[in-house]
Write a protein that binds this DNA or RNA. Structure first.
Length: 305
DNA sequence: ACAATAATAT
DNA sequence: AATATTATTG
């Protein structure tokens, strides 16, 4: 039982373990790739920003595959990385930087489904869903993209559920694809074909608002986290359950690799049914062959479900 | 001008 | 395969 104490204290002092920004700065330069250095515009010349006072809301992550070189001007000017042309210390950084891919964890998806369920298919549109989820850092496009896929999933389900006689063999690919979706119970009426489902008697008129102000803060934190630790792969514990069993890959809290996982606890007003959530950098789901290092963001549920 | 959806790209 | 991004439409 003493373990319980330890487990509860694993986060008690997480702050103390955090190195100062100044401490990390030099390290970052060493660890991060030149690309990242450019993208992040490491403020070598700029005063290090203390936690809580981020220099800028910009998120960035340079993408590796040099395929995205939008500049129509035929001048990559790639040779210049120290300079000032990009953004010298402390000033508004490039706003054209990309954020890392969002990873839809089962928890995050749960929130998504929850929101959709409460809104009703009718009103379940990206913007609204996003707001209801109140997950900072989550963008409308993130939701839209996921929603698109989710709809396909639902269609698929309907298709093989109503059709008589099993005409549509579910390809193996599909099964694998739906792992995420399978992890969350799909509200009955979702599958109801042919008609809409009104909004649940639940939160009918929820003053959804005032939730998007944390975005900048967390966004910055995400950025820092990305700079901070260089995680390759911690190994995974979730057993590859052959089927719909998402073995919570979230036990990483037990990992004692010198890992620096940080959790950002953001206090936010319990506007709607669910407590707000924050994005946190976590371990990656595991990859099989061929997937190099990919920086991603995952969501860690601050509240339980 | 904005938001949603569809289609396509990475 | 999973997301992002772009294009199209309402």
């Amino acid at each position: 039982m003493r373990e319980e104490e330890e487990s509860s204290s694993w986060f008690a002092h997480w702050e103390e373990q955090l190195p100062s920004p100044e401490e990390l700065m030099p390290l970052s330069q060493t660890l991060i790739t030149p690309d990242l250095a450019i993208a992040f515009d490491i403020p070598v010349a700029a005063a290090a920003a203390p936690p809580g006072a981020n220099q800028n809301p910009g998120l960035s992550l340079h993408h590796p595959p040099a395929s995205s070189r939008p500049p129509p001007h035929s001048d990559p000017e790639s040779s210049d990385l120290n300079s000032a042309s990009a953004a010298a210390g402390g000033d508004e950084p490039a706003r054209t930087l990309k954020r890392p891919r969002l990873v839809w964890t089962p928890q995050l998806h749960k929130r998504f489904v929850d929101a959709v369920a409460h809104l009703g298919i009718k009103n379940a549109v990206p913007k609204t869903i996003m707001q209801l989820m109140s997950v900072d850092g989550l963008t409308r496009e993130n939701v839209a993209s996921h929603l698109q896929k989710y709809r396909l999933y639902l269609k698929r389900m309907q298709g093989l559920s109503g059709s008589g006689g099993g005409g549509g063999p579910i390809s193996a690919a599909d099964a694998a694809t739906d792992q995420l979706f399978a992890s969350t119970p799909v509200p009955h009426h979702f599958l109801s074909r042919g008609s809409v489902a009104g909004p649940e008697p639940f939160l009918s008129c929820m003053p959804v608002a005032a939730l998007q102000h944390h975005q900048q803060i967390t966004a910055a934190m995400q950025q820092q986290q990305q700079q901070y630790y260089h995680r390759r792969h911690l190994g995974h514990y979730g057993s590859p359950t052959g089927r719909g069993g998402f073995d919570h890959a979230f036990q990483n809290r037990a990992v004692s690799h010198s890992g620096m996982h940080q959790m950002v606890g953001l206090a936010a007003p319990p506007a709607m049914g669910f407590p707000p959530t924050t994005l946190v950098d976590d371990l990656e789901p595991a990859k099989r062959g061929g997937n190099g290092e990919r920086k991603v963001l995952t969501l860690f549920p601050t509240g339980e479900e």
